[in-house]
């Protein structure tokens, strides 16, 4: 118990003193995970909508695939992206390994299926309600998919947040493709892992508390933005 109290004190001290290195680490975490979430949304939302409204061979297989990929272990994704980006791998020439870009790629691979699968569920419900109306008005399936994405924009923020939560909390993938390089690819989760290995458990826990605070803050911002937008445009 005293250890937890100690780390909470430490966490508030770290925040209060505005530790520069901590700020850089938090900043990089946000930068990488928000980029990955944005990319995942850009890819996953249209894909999920397509799976929801489309009827094409292989659709069921794809749905099962994406639902399954939601549970993909980060370490496996990390390894996969590592092998792709490694100098000996197919994309080695790009020299992206151990850069934040590599981390964004890995987290996108991790998060995109989640966004796609959640979008699929949301848009399927929408499709159920709107299908006849939209077809009657003359919308093609693709057009209907696009319309329903816009129509479900408020529900879809939840999918985005779920993806962001997964991205910012994972350590396995960014550790492997980022290398946890001090000042370059060290993010909150890899710092926590590092401090744990150093046996500095109170500091590790304090960083954990800060991570949760950051995630809560992002969620709070999203929540109020959504409320405001729904009031205005809902």
């Amino acid at each position: 118990m005293s250890e937890i109290a100690q780390s909470l004190t430490l966490a508030s001290e770290l925040i209060a003193t505005g530790d520069n290195r901590l700020a850089a680490i938090v900043g990089l975490s946000l930068q990488v995970s928000l980029s990955a979430t944005l990319l995942s949304c850009a890819l996953g939302i249209p894909l999920g909508a397509l799976l929801a409204v489309g009827r094409f061979p292989g659709r069921h297989a794809l749905i099962i695939l994406f639902n399954g990929l939601m549970g993909l272990p980060p370490v496996v994704v990390g390894l996969l992206v590592y092998l792709l980006l490694s100098r000996a791998g197919p994309l080695g020439e790009l020299g992206l390994l151990f850069t934040p870009t590599a981390m964004v790629i890995a987290q996108t691979v991790l998060v995109m299926p989640i966004i796609a699968a959640l979008t699929l569920q949301v848009i399927e419900d929408e499709w159920h309600e709107y299908r006849e109306q939209l077809r009657s008005l003359g919308a093609s399936r693709l057009r209907a998919g696009r319309t329903l994405i816009w129509n479900a924009r408020f529900s879809l923020t939840t999918a985005g947040l779920a993806g962001f939560g997964r991205a910012i909390a994972e350590v396995g993938a960014v550790m492997i493709v980022g290398g946890n390089i001090d000042g370059v690819t060290r993010v909150m989760t890899t710092t926590i892992a590092l401090e744990t290995s150093k046996g500095d458990l109170p500091l590790a826990l304090a960083l954990g508390a800060i991570l949760i605070t950051v995630v809560l803050l992002v969620n709070a911002v999203a929540f109020f933005l959504r409320q405001w937008a729904e009031k205005r445009w809902g």
Partner: peptide, 13 residues
């Protein structure tokens, strides 16, 4: 042709 349904299914806009 066009159709109106029992429930008016408007878009969120």
């Amino acid at each position: 042709q066009a159709m109106v349904f029992q429930r008016p299914i408007l878009l969120r806009t």
